[in-house]
């Protein structure tokens, strides 16, 4: 069976897209857990109260851009399936 470069790119896009999207979703979920201090996360991770908004901002920007980027790749990977 021959696999073209286009085929390899599609498989790679699907795999990387899935992983990146999952990482993004985890980052957003983690930022929510951090905000509501689920399981006392703020104390466990020793997050200073003043830095919480900054951490949240970084996690949310990373999370959403990863989700969007991941979905683009996943769509490309699944296009001709």
């Amino acid at each position: 069976m021959q696999i073209s470069i286009k085929g390899i790119r599609k498989i790679l896009a699907a795999v990387v897209g899935t992983v990146q999207g999952t990482l993004g979703a985890l980052a957003v979920a983690f930022s929510c857990f951090l905000y509501v201090n689920f399981f006392g996360l703020q104390e466990i991770l020793k997050v200073p109260a003043g830095f919480l908004p900054l951490y949240m901002l970084i996690l949310i920007i990373f999370g959403f851009s990863s989700i969007i980027g991941g979905l683009f790749l996943l769509t490309e990977g699944l296009e001709s399936l």
Binding site: R9, L12, A13, V16, G17, V19, Q20, L23, S66, G69, G70, F72, L73, E76
Partner: peptide, 18 residues
């Protein structure tokens, strides 16, 4: 791991023709 995935995903998205 995050760094590698982000670079790979970034490259794939930037070079895409959609």
């Amino acid at each position: 791991f995050i760094s590698v995935i982000s670079i790979l995903a970034g490259l794939l998205n930037v070079t895409a023709r959609t």
